[in-house]
Computed example of a mutant assay.
Amino acid sequence: MPTLYLIRHGQASFGADDYDVLSPIGHEQAEALGQWFATQNITPDLVAHGTLRRQKETLAGIQKGLGIDLPPEEHPGLDEYDFGELLKAKYAAGDAPEGMMTDHKSHFRTLRTTVAEWQRDEIPNPPETWGQFTNRVDTACRALMRDGVETVFAVSSGGAISQAISALLETPGVHQTKMQLQMKNTAVNRFVFTPRSTYFHGFNETPHITAANADRLLTYA
């Protein structure tokens, strides 16, 4: 059956001035995933990413490891929600938690509470509403799972991927956040589809990360 491989980007540059750049480990993760696909004889006939640099760089690394160079489609619906702008909207009056964009524990604790408020439409003037976010993710996925394609590689981000899964499984918003927080870098999530139905077949898989390389390649940010 036709399959959409929805892949999270590689490790980005957490805490740096520009987060939206793969780290050296992120590049290594992407190429390793492409090499694993090659060993399984899995080759896409459609590749895609959002507009973010870390997504584009990840897809380039996967294609390099796989030994192909297909022209990608760009779907803004695959982009991550803008957590930084959400925080600015939430803490417009100040009192933002210290270290929330540089310390991992503070960051993820703040993410959980902020996204829950966003899902309830409790943050004034967000960069996009929760409804707008979910709609654009759904639109992108529908565009990728179309007639005439058999194997799709699409590089996205943790929040968008988790929302695609949550929508398919019809789970409450809290589970979207739980899935996002455990999503590994370059994790593969699989959807099989027909013109009438979509089925969820795999979550957060990293077959290219083994006991031999996990100390270096297993990351979450």
Results as ranks from 00 to 15, higher is better:
78 L>E: 09
103 D>I: 04
73 E>K: 15
103 D>P: 00
96 A>N: 01
95 D>F: 04
60 A>H: 08
105 K>V: 05
113 T>V: 02
109 R>D: 15
121 D>C: 06
64 K>I: 02
88 K>I: 10
62 I>R: 06
74 E>W: 01
101 M>Q: 09
97 P>D: 09
86 L>W: 07
120 R>M: 10
86 L>T: 01
111 L>I: 03
105 K>G: 01
104 H>F: 05
110 T>N: 05
72 P>S: 06
117 E>T: 03
81 Y>C: 07
102 T>N: 14
64 K>C: 04
121 D>R: 12
64 K>Y: 05
115 V>Y: 09
77 G>W: 13
83 F>A: 11
114 T>D: 01
94 G>A: 07
98 E>Q: 11
65 G>W: 07
90 K>R: 13
95 D>P: 00
116 A>L: 15
103 D>E: 11
111 L>T: 00
99 G>R: 04
111 L>R: 04
113 T>N: 06
72 P>I: 09
80 E>N: 11
74 E>G: 07
70 L>S: 12
103 D>F: 02
78 L>G: 13
89 A>T: 02
73 E>N: 10
104 H>P: 00
120 R>V: 01
106 S>N: 05
119 Q>Y: 14
111 L>H: 02
118 W>Y: 08
75 H>C: 08
98 E>I: 11
119 Q>A: 14
95 D>S: 06
88 K>S: 03
107 H>P: 00
71 P>R: 15
60 A>W: 06
104 H>I: 01
68 I>N: 00
74 E>K: 07
65 G>Y: 10
111 L>P: 00
62 I>W: 03
81 Y>H: 11
89 A>H: 08
103 D>Y: 04
92 A>H: 05
76 P>W: 13
98 E>H: 12
62 I>E: 03
116 A>S: 12
106 S>H: 13
107 H>G: 00
120 R>I: 08
104 H>N: 01
91 Y>N: 04
83 F>M: 14
106 S>C: 07
80 E>S: 11
63 Q>Y: 06
106 S>L: 12
116 A>Q: 11
60 A>N: 10
97 P>T: 08
121 D>Y: 05
96 A>C: 06
66 L>W: 03
116 A>H: 08
